[in-house]
Nucleic acid binder design. Structure first.
Lengths: 207, 207, 207, 207
DNA sequence: GATGAATGAGTATTCATTCAT
DNA sequence: AATGAATGAATACTCATTCAT
């Protein structure tokens, strides 16, 4: 079983550790069987604990999914901000952010499944990755990097591209990462030439 | 209640008409409550018939959803092909196709909900709109309209943009239609200038 | 198993008959194990039908209990009114009514259990036997048979006596019937002498 | 929160005090929500302690209820015996006893709820107030105060009247106290005149 | 073909009680 | 003694599907 959240809670009290195990288990089972096919019993059985224990930590299945999506988003986003510190160019920042997030998702395979699944299962507000993306782009707009200031609709379209990429990532083709960034920038209205250049510059930050 | 499929079967035998009522009802209820929250009882009650009647027309719930998605796709796609007949330019064909489909979806509001919902709920094979899109693009590639021949991944990304647009259409803003086409073409690698031109030309076909 | 409500619905549609079986079964099981110890499964198993069938007829356990108490009360009260027709004297009417109801309860042993049990389990409004009693007494008041006009409190006290008697009836001692009537009249303020006389007169109506 | 049992244990060791808090809390919560709707968690949460603490003081929920009913009965009965010392006349003793108990219940509102509720919830043996009542009456019989020696059935009927009065007491009408005594004596076969006289004499003992 | 009724196999949830610290 | 956490055993209720008419 995955031990990601479990290890995050190493040293904390038992409650936190059990919660971690539950999150890890849900992650694995969701990735294996799909979110909506998963019963609570599957998760607790996989976690090796009693059915009822679940309810000490989450109100119901929905709360678990939300918590999981939030936790993953947090883990994905956390390392991004510091890495972006020195980068001036907005499009390059998007390239790098996308790269970091996707590589993180690659290492924890099931993350992309859950995030991708939750994206269309949960109300949008829960998806912090999407929000973060919007934030990144918004900053780019202020800097004038994108010709037309993207409104909500445009941001939705970019996010759709990103999530679609994240889903495909499951299959393990690394090239997808750069191509997703490319498409995001294209939707944002950059000319193909400038897009290439941004991708190029991005590479400098993660050789 | 919607009367679309019902009227399609006007004059046919009773069996066909009942089936039509069921499809219409499912459409309405799905649009209202979401596909996975809908129980068969909701549909038959809405249709004003006994729940067992359902099984005279569909093997099970899955078959209904499939049939519905297929039927909608058929209705959406049918008018497209003939309208595209005289159009030589592949990007323009995409623009026009997108426009026709989205306007059709606009007129039958619930269609977009069901299509959008089904897209992430059902196995991809059921979604014929997506397939059709891919077909259209593939033709464009043969004609050399798109610089890089789009592979499956790229087609997925375009489809993601399309479906995301279709979902937003719910909210009733017509501008979304053209902007979705714009983004699709952008993802396909066209320069912003050429995209504008294709949109322009497309307008000629639906004043 | 009891066949009371079942036979009441003889000739009616299947729905009514099944409902009858459920009522009969509930009656038996309640009487056997007590209302609050009884699970729905006990009832349906006893009735020889599927658990889920219950929900085709009653929303939940509460609705069943209410329905049962109502049905019993109805059966108990029904024969009373006609028998009281010719009786002028209010106290005698109470004696006779009490006698009829209690004998009915004696014949269907479990009735008294359920009524007695429900009395303190359900909100008072459901107990129609109690209401009927109050009605009877109220009429007596109009006729001036009881010195002090009984208010709600006094009626509650009389009802308490009646229900307490009904509960004891379970044990099968017939004498209890007359003694309960006696105590009811006593609480209503009749002198012991007059009470005896009313009991005497009552006997004329059921030799 | 009530502080009755808590204060009873003032000065005693911590164990006793905690037990007192639990009794007080149970009393309040029972009175608020009814005994059978109350979960142990409700009580311990109200008491501000961990639920497991409960089991340091009571074997299980039943033991708590029993203990509570016993404790209340004890508190109610204790003051009665000494006050009855000088009273010779049995009916007057009943009047006075009823008065003392009901006034005590009035001051600790929730008592009547719990006692009344427990009466029909618990096996009869737990209800010591009822037993005490019977004892009182039995003594009266020995003295020849009641024409016909009341057997168990008759005592049940008297108790029913008493408990019914106790329940109504909740609503705060003090007159109920004397009227309940009146009805108890009536059921015991005293003539209305003698009942009045006994009530009168009783008043002398609690002006 | 249509229907009302019945049903089996789930499945989430509750709660008293025990366990480890 | 007190506690936070874990748990087993129950139990009500849902829903797609089948059956008999």
């Amino acid at each position: 079983m995955s031990r990601y959240f479990q290890e995050r809670s190493r040293g904390l009290n038992k409650r936190a550790r059990t919660r971690g195990i539950l999150l890890d288990s849900a992650l694995d089972v969701f990735a294996e069987s799909g979110i909506s096919n998963t019963r609570l019993d599957d998760i607790t059985k996989y976690a090796g604990m009693a059915n009822a224990t679940f309810y000490n930590h989450f109100k119901d299945k929905d709360e678990l999914i939300t918590a999981l999506a939030k936790a993953i988003a947090l883990e994905l986003i956390a390392p991004v901000d510091e890495r972006l510190a020195g980068i001036k160019d907005a499009p390059v920042r998007i390239v790098v952010a996308n790269n970091i997030i996707m590589h993180a998702a690659l290492e924890q395979k099931s993350w992309s499944t859950v995030l991708g699944g939750a994206f269309y299962l949960l109300p949008p507000r829960y998806i912090d990755v999407g929000s973060y993306l919007k934030l990144l782009i918004a900053r780019g707009v202020e800097e004038g990097s994108f010709t037309d200031a993207p409104d909500n609709f445009q941001l939705d379209q970019v996010t759709a591209v990103f999530i679609s990429g994240l889903r495909t990532l499951d299959k393990g083709d690394v090239n997808i990462i750069d191509r997703t960034a490319q498409n995001m920038l294209r939707v944002l209205g950059m000319s193909p030439a400038k897009v290439s250049s941004a991708l190029e510059k991005g590479h400098a930050f993660y050789s």
